[in-house]
Amino acid sequence: DSCIQFTRHASDVLLNLNRLRSRDILTDVTILVNRQQFRAHKTVLMACSGLFYSIFTDSLKCNMNVINLDPKVDPEGFAVLLDFMYTSRLTLKESLIVSVMNTAIYLQMDHVVDTCHRFIKSSDSS
């Protein structure tokens, strides 16, 4: 008996999900952030963000196809986090780090918030 473990399966699946997103295939929700629109899959959003998990497990909200985020959320910060959800790569630029962190707090993505904190501390110290 043995088990074959495909070491790149998780990244292959994520790559394919990101290709489905970029081609708008089976995307089922539009996230509005200050009039900027982002198409995505509810399941991926739920898997990565506590806020979206709460929204789409709510029987009254789960059928919503357009979600308006808080006007204080920066679209650029949201774009960085949405790309992270679909690629596992978090782009951290000095100019965006605070808005990414604040958006991660809002979206309840605690591990990303911790990483942003560490990044800010390390850049302060350097």
């Binding site: 088990c3 495909f6 070491t7 292959d12």
Partner: peptide
């Protein structure tokens, strides 16, 4: 997975969805 050995397969695991049609 219980028992036996685990063989690591490094190649692709699934088909690749094209970027654009």
């Amino acid at each position: 997975y219980e028992g036996g050995n685990t063989i690591k397969e490094m190649g692709r695991s699934i088909h690749e969805i094209p970027r654009k049609e």
